[in-house]
Amino acid sequence: MLRTQFEEDLANLHRQFYEMGRMVSSAVDKSVKSFIRHDKEIAQGVIDDDVEINEAELQLEKKSLEMIALQQPVTKDLRIIITVMKAVSDLERIGDHAVAIAKSTIRVKGETRILEVEEKISEMSDAVKELLDEVMAAYIENDEGKAREIAKKDSAVNQHFSEIYKMSIEEMKRNPDTIVGGTDYLQVAGFLERIGDYVTNICEWIVYLQTGKILELNTNRTE
């Protein structure tokens, strides 16, 4: 009976973690859309909804600690709970970066835009969201191999950042009117790059869940 309850609690933990992942993925998508479209209403929605993401993190951490204290799990079961506790922290940080992007939208007051850079930021956001959705699927499927492949894809996100950085700096040198907007572009691209790093962290926790080993899958991440 106790085992059945524990297994039910584990299933709920997985479900709640996945739901939090979906909320975070949506926040990232909406935050960049709000930035590109200069839509402060969408941006404010991302900021307001972050309360739910933070609450989800607290509930998952609380439940995880309760399960460790009351059930005293060992080996694989303990690794599952540790993985959730660690990965949920990464999800919460991704949510924080989505909020930071939304706040950049709120700050924008009609600065001169660089449309080519905005298009590249949109592409970068799509790549980041795809990685985030893929890592949540890998988590649900307990797919260590997929997690390793996703971590490798983060290099493409880093390449997007390099291109955005170069394009923004060149345009800011050429046209001083773009300096304020260009600075925002660099900030947003930096947030997206760090989101990619947090996705890699989650990949590492999936590998840990399956192997019991903590590995660094991407040595080129930024902190």
Rank of each mutant, 00 (worst) to 15 (best):
R3M: 07
F6C: 03
E7R: 11
E7F: 09
E7P: 02
E8N: 10
L10Q: 00
A11E: 15
A11P: 01
L13W: 09
F17Y: 12
Y18C: 11
Y18P: 01
R22W: 02
V24S: 05
S26T: 14
S26N: 15
V28S: 08
D29T: 07
K30G: 01
K30L: 12
S31H: 08
K33D: 07
S34Y: 13
S34V: 12
I36Y: 10
R37T: 12
R37F: 06
R37G: 05
H38R: 15
K40L: 07
I42P: 02
Q44M: 04
Q44D: 00
G45F: 03
V46P: 08
V46T: 04
I47E: 01
I47D: 05
D48S: 06
D49P: 01
D50H: 13
E52I: 03
I53G: 00
I53M: 05
E55Y: 04
E55D: 10
A56R: 07
E57Y: 14
E61L: 12
K63S: 09
L65R: 06
M67A: 07
I68Q: 09
A69F: 03
P73W: 04
P73E: 02
K76R: 08
L78T: 08
R79N: 04
I80N: 14
I80T: 15
I81G: 10
I82G: 09
T83C: 15
V84W: 09
K86R: 08
A87R: 01
A87C: 02
S89E: 05
H97C: 00
I101K: 08
R107V: 11
T112S: 07
T112Q: 09
R113F: 01
I114E: 01
I114F: 05
E118R: 05
E119A: 14
I121G: 04
I121S: 03
M124I: 11
D126F: 06
V128T: 14
E130T: 07
L132R: 03
D133L: 06
E134R: 14
E134M: 14
A137R: 09
A138M: 06
I140S: 10
N142G: 15
N142D: 14
G145N: 15
A147V: 06
R148T: 03
I150R: 08
S155H: 10
A156Q: 11
N158G: 07
N158F: 06
N158L: 04
Q159V: 06
Q159E: 11
Q159S: 13
H160F: 13
E163D: 11
K166I: 03
K166V: 08
M167E: 13
M167R: 12
M167Q: 13
M172I: 13
R174Y: 04
P176Q: 07
P176V: 01
P176R: 10
I179L: 12
G182P: 02
T183D: 09
T183A: 13
T183H: 12
D184M: 11
D184C: 02
Y185I: 06
A189P: 07
A189T: 12
F191M: 04
R194E: 08
R194S: 08
Y198S: 00
T200I: 05
N201D: 14
I202R: 09
C203T: 14
C203E: 10
C203N: 14
I206Q: 03
Q210A: 13
Q210F: 00
G212Y: 12
E216Y: 05
N218F: 10
T219S: 12
N220K: 08
R221H: 00
E223S: 01
